[in-house]
């Protein structure tokens, strides 16, 4: 089965231009950034980091589509792989931290402070 271009189903991206996607990606990045800075639960901080990573992938896919090349798509494939590995290692670190300190609130994890 050959790949079906979406344009045969819908009049795709008639007026949506690249800057719409970049704006969405930028706003998503800002939301994740605010989450990283303001939240105190380590797990939620980690989720906000994933949001920021996703914003970057959205921008890469949009640039790839509007430039008519595959390279951005391949790059996003690698980003997703690395992100999955990162989540596994990061959550293992959080679990090890919780075993030792019995908390995941960053305010209570200030051993290195001063």
């Amino acid at each position: 089965m050959s790949a079906l271009p979406l344009s045969t189903l819908l009049p795709v991206i008639a007026t949506i231009s690249l800057n719409h996607y970049i704006a969405v990606a930028g706003m998503l990045f800002v939301i994740g950034f605010i989450g990283v800075l303001l939240r105190q639960n380590t797990l939620v901080i980690y989720m906000s980091l994933e949001l920021m990573l996703n914003a970057a992938t959205l921008a890469a896919v949009a640039f790839s589509r509007y430039n008519g090349t595959m390279d951005g798509n391949v790059f996003v494939f690698f980003i997703i792989t690395v992100a999955a590995a990162e989540v596994a290692v990061g959550l293992a670190i959080i679990v090890a931290l919780f075993r030792k300190r019995h908390t995941v609130q960053v305010e209570e994890l200030g051993t290195l402070k001063n």
């Binding site: 991206i13 800057n19 930028g26 950034f33 509007y66």
Partner: peptide
């Protein structure tokens, strides 16, 4: 960051339509 996004949003070089050929990622 929002200011940067706003500047990007108004950049004329980004206000382009996609190439008409079938999807490259498809």
């Amino acid at each position: 960051l929002f200011t940067g996004v706003g500047v990007l949003y108004q950049a004329p070089s980004l206000a382009v339509a996609p190439p008409a050929d079938p999807g490259v990622g498809a």
